[in-house]
Design a protein around this nucleic acid. Structure first.
Lengths: 336, 336
DNA sequence: CTGTTAGCGCATTCAC
DNA sequence: GTGAATGCGCTAACAG
């Protein structure tokens, strides 16, 4: 019942605590014989060293903090899985911080950017402002941004600009001219950069095709399936309604499908829809989408972080992961 | 750069470390004046106490360990969200342990069931064997099972037996007689009790209706959409193929829908499908399903755990959450 | 190779 | 009210 400590083992094995510590840490500087005796004592007393004491003594937390916005969005879960996949094999514990609002986000950026909180920080889709980035840098705590950017920080990202262009180009190639866009708010306190880049890619594609950009065809709003549905309804009720819609996330794309169904508009005959992310739901729904390697981004981010813990790289390392347009059943030439 | 410790604050404020500690912990036994001075020093040096040192000194880890099988299944993510929702407002960190195989599960049961690892344990859908339960009990570490059962442990669960009955009864009421069932392996080293109960509920409903149980209509296999699809294909290729299938999870139900599509069998005209869980995909797919309160179960489990940390209850507390049959578009009377 | 000792940073006595 | 001292369990440096 009473906690068994390293001292108990030492006493039991009739050695010093130093020796016990040595066998615990696989130090070669201990004879086979004593190692055996110590291990025996450990087994008999079912002893396991206290991680807390260990951390304090080592001056390391043996912990990686993962900060992400709500666990609600499937895309974040996929990334988290990737992170867990890597961390599961490491010596680090994964502690989870879920951010519900900008205030919370800021407090995490403040609290975690100091020694003794975590040995490494992983931020997902939560771009820091300059001051926060500065603080991170100054704190010397290794960190990696996944799915968000900052000039001074390590990051793994995808080329969202290109992705937006790819999606739009696909629609243009099919023959669409009136192409709507639905996205999150682009200028929010969250600074959700990827969305903004996708939007710009959309503009670029239009421009390249010689179409004029019509801001009436773009709507921004809060994220979510139902919200996207409402936005799409607004777009589809126009007399000159678009024949195709690029939704900046799969969740929103599914909302668009809802809207089409509600209004009796057939997909893809009367309306083409492209999403973004490549969450599993997209496959269920036969949604054409721009797939980004979500799981992979988690893996890469975690690995980059672990490397940086071992030996910190100076310059910001940017890993850009490839994206891919996956054509399924929700896009087709305009039925006119 | 150098770590600022409580001692630095004490020196700066010209007080003892004890006093600083007191203001950090809101002890009333400190004058307004000195409190002010200390807080001032803390602010000036941007000091924050080291959680690790705090933990060691307090003898508490300030940590809740959440153990769950792969992060892959949406149902687990929902529960995790519920847990996070509660823990986010507490003083505890949420550390995540993802279990990939039975060996890993067993090692977590062993390692976490001792002092100084976590102040509380949350196991999701990972029923312990008697020895593990015994060890948990003996370790005195507060713990709660979510979605799995053991006679001696606190748990929050749903009535899976009733759920299985409910789903099957629904199909019977619609007029179906040949009702297939697809489930995980029921007798595995994972001891996935809920599945077994759903299966038994199915049998019970058949029995009540006076139908004979036909084991040819039940298939067990590894979990997963594709796996379920393969099983369903097997079922649906029989000359006397079932007119309805109860899949023991939504993921599997979606696999069944895949199979129907592949074989050109219309749902619900030629085949009715009922799922189980109530994940969001189910809504997307218009799937009739038995909805269990996943998020809620996480919330309840976390709350129960926190209560038990404050003052441990002796007897095992069992919270049973209500389930609900949600009828959507995949069930209808048999088209014959 | 091995025992002893000095911290790691904080909370908590116990005197004053 | 407050300061000084002790211990939480472990690692690492230092003698031997």
């Amino acid at each position: 019942m009473a906690n068994v400590t390293i001292r108990d083992i030492a006493r039991r094995a009739k050695v010093g605590v130093g020796t016990v510590s040595r066998v615990l840490n696989d130090s070669p500087a201990v004879s086979e014989e004593t190692r055996r005796i110590v291990l025996e004592a450990i087994r008999e007393l079912d002893y396991a060293p206290s991680p807390i004491a260990r951390r304090l003594s080592l001056g390391r937390t043996l912990t990686i903090a993962v900060v992400l916005p709500f666990l609600t969005l499937p895309a974040f879960v996929e990334r988290l899985r990737g992170v867990q996949h890597v961390l599961g094999d490491s010596e680090y514990d994964l502690v989870l911080y879920s951010v519900g609002n900008p205030t919370q986000r800021d407090s995490y950026y403040r609290d975690l950017a100091r020694p003794n909180r975590a040995d490494g920080l992983l931020f997902m889709s939560l771009p820091p402002n300059n001051q926060q980035a500065q603080r991170l840098l100054h704190s010397k705590v290794p960190n990696v941004m996944i799915g968000s950017v900052h000039q001074t920080l390590h990051q793994v990202r995808v080329d969202d600009f290109y992705g937006g262009e790819l999606a739009t180009q696909h629609l243009i190639n099919l023959g669409h001219r009136r192409i709507g866009l639905i996205s999150d708010y682009i200028d929010t306190p969250w600074h959700f950069v990827p969305m903004r880049d996708r939007f710009r890619g959309y503009q670029k594609a239009l421009e390249k095709a010689g179409f004029e950009f019509n801001s009436d065809f773009t709507i921004q709003g809060p994220h979510g399936r139902d919200e996207a549905c409402a936005m799409a309804v607004k777009l589809l009720k126009r007399p000159d309604r678009p024949s195709a819609i690029f939704a900046c996330s799969d969740t929103q794309a599914i909302g668009v499908l809802d809207a089409a169904q509600k209004l009796g508009i057939r997909v893809p005959e009367e309306l083409s829809v492209v999403g973004y992310d490549g969450i599993r739901d997209a496959e269920y729904m036969q949604l054409t989408t721009v797939e980004q390697p979500l799981f992979e981004s988690g893996v890469e981010g975690a690995q980059l972080l672990l490397e940086n813990i071992v030996n910190p790289m100076p310059g910001p390392k940017v890993i850009t992961l490839p994206i891919e347009l996956v054509i399924r059943g929700t896009t087709a030439p305009p039925g006119d």
